[in-house]
Design a protein around this nucleic acid. Structure first.
Lengths: 340, 340
DNA sequence: CTGTTAGCGCCTTCAA
DNA sequence: TTGAAGGCGCTAACAG
């Protein structure tokens, strides 16, 4: 209503006390008579007064805000992770600033372009795959940093074991009796993410353990890449009987190719993804769940704990992954049961 | 590096000028000798100095931040819309605060729980389906407000014509020759969104125009609801030959039921969604595109324009929708061609 | 073109 | 338990 938002002065006047008292009450500081506390509270409510974080931050040096840096906002994973982070920050009454640095990412010095310094209490990066130098550049911001989806020694990190997850997924297919197990991975022209590399390694290790040689096709990420890669695999003189995709979105593209080619899943080819994307359940796609919401929540809480001094700023938090068995994987055709 | 982040004072000292000069340079204000401007710029760079929005905002009354309020962060739509908003705000060098109010939404007075007042320059709500009273409550924050996904008279709104979109989708099915066209809608126990209502109305209107009576099933939103609704439709003594779902996620659930029931799409049943969810392309689902990124971008730019006084704060922006024809819809079985 | 001065709204001493 | 005074880092008037 008021064109001029109320200030602490107004609240003080209305409650008939001094500025300091209002400040104490609103901060929940001790040493205020209950009666007075109540009176101030009511005055503030009546005026719809909200403390200006700008002004208070100027004095305390804390902004009450946490910056979350993501490469992109569109992919499913980020929305879910952000939801977790958001919930955790809200518990601590911290606001969430979101910076999407997608294209900027490539540019040298992108860290500088963000007005982080002095404008945020902590930085959370999600799947940013930071180099050591970028980490140091962000250190320069002078606030605690938490890395999500990436494990860097001696730095607060929340991540999953991509290698183990992919290895487990591969073993699932091997255990079903498959021997011709191919892998579809992703890589852009300028970027081969750590996560991509680890998953590929995990697949390779599991294959090697089984005495099989790896068979991987790497394309651009997303449906398109997955579809193309699957096409290539199908054109082999002896196509795979099982395919593991680096992530669900790739698996979906592969699935489309299979459907269009009239190849039945899992009858002729077992298909498996990674992530447990919401669409995976619709297609009954066997996959590896990595619960990004929980990851976000954990990261958010870790951030809060570091800020309150409850946690050290080099905590490493490995989140669990879980095999989600669905209808897209089965023993290879002609097999009566499991191979063991 | 520096434990104490540099302040404007430091920059001024290093450049050998006064505070105001530094301020002018960093604000891009006119009236500074090029040589001096350059010197200051360099000093700031060397110190990794970034202006504290906290402090400047205290003086200017502007925070350099825009609050975006969403019910949820997880669904695909919001991530995409946020990406658009984010890009638009970045163009204007504004930061984006994100508030997820999901569960809080129901609570009376949720608007008060957000520290919006004095902490943001504008508020953008996305698919919040605000009541007149909630709008007024947000007005109380005292900053411009832009509504996305909702059209409220005399308020800045960016939205699509859900009614027309659903009617167009329905007509597509009718034009193919279908007469038994069912609709699967959504509604939670406590919420029947305006968008849901409009889409249902659009379907109803198109059916009425064709002299057909509507046939709608309403369930909880999401895959589950869609799957259940489809099951119900299939159990009819004379099932529909075409189904329009309120949004893609519902259509995906319906698709799963159809697949599991062995009903072929589009041979036996044509299936259509709304939104153009990324998974829709994988399933070759005919749908209505509503380009949430563009909507977000437009909303973000409108916000910026309102802030700079370039646009009025009651601009209504209707975004286009577009029919995306894919393989999930076709003329009913036994039809040689189109019915007209 | 540049420097000086006076606050912006709040928190934090300190004194009462 | 409460109030008064100073200053956080910056911008906006003014003066030079």
């Amino acid at each position: 209503m008021s064109s001029q938002p109320a200030s602490m002065r107004d609240v003080a006047d209305r409650a008939g006390v001094s500025l300091s008292t209002v400040s104490r009450v609103l901060r929940g500081a001790p040493g205020v008579a209950p009666e007075v506390r109540h009176r101030v509270q009511r005055a503030a409510d009546e005026l719809s007064y909200v403390v200006s974080r700008n002004a208070s931050g100027l004095v305390t040096g804390r902004t009450g805000r946490v910056a979350v840096v993501v490469p992109f906002l569109q992919p499913w994973y980020f929305g879910v992770a952000l939801a977790g982070i958001s919930d955790a920050l809200r518990e601590a009454d911290l606001d969430m600033l979101v910076y999407q640095v997608g294209e900027t990412r490539a540019r040298q010095g992108w860290t500088r372009s963000l007005p982080l310094r002095r404008n945020t209490d902590a930085v959370v990066t999600v799947s940013m795959d930071l180099s050591e130098e970028e980490c140091r550049r962000l250190d320069d911001v002078g606030v605690p940093m938490v890395l999500v989806g990436q494990c860097v020694p001696r730095r607060a990190s929340v991540y999953i074991d991509d290698r183990a997850g992919a290895a487990g997924a591969t073993r699932h297919l091997l255990n079903l009796g498959h021997t011709r197990v191919a892998y579809i991975g992703s890589r852009t022209e300028e970027w081969f993410s750590t996560s991509s590399r680890h998953r590929l390694e995990g697949y390779g290790a599991a294959m090697a353990d089984a005495g099989l040689s790896p068979w991987s096709v790497v394309r651009s990420p997303g449906h398109e890449g997955g579809g193309l890669a699957m096409g290539e695999l199908l054109s082999d003189h002896d196509p795979p009987t099982a395919v593991l995709a680096e992530f669900d979105s790739i698996a979906l593209g592969a699935y489309r190719t299979l459907r269009r080619s009239g190849v039945r899943v899992p009858d002729s080819v077992s298909l498996m993804g990674f992530d447990n994307h919401e669409a995976a359940s619709v297609l009954d796609l066997t996959t590896v769940d990595q619960a990004p919401y929980d990851t976000g929540l954990a990261a958010g809480r870790l951030t809060v704990d570091i800020l309150t001094g409850t946690a050290r700023d080099d905590v490493q938090l490995e989140m669990p992954t879980q095999l989600i068995l669905r209808q897209s994987t089965a023993a290879p055709r002609g097999t009566r049961g499991l191979s063991w």
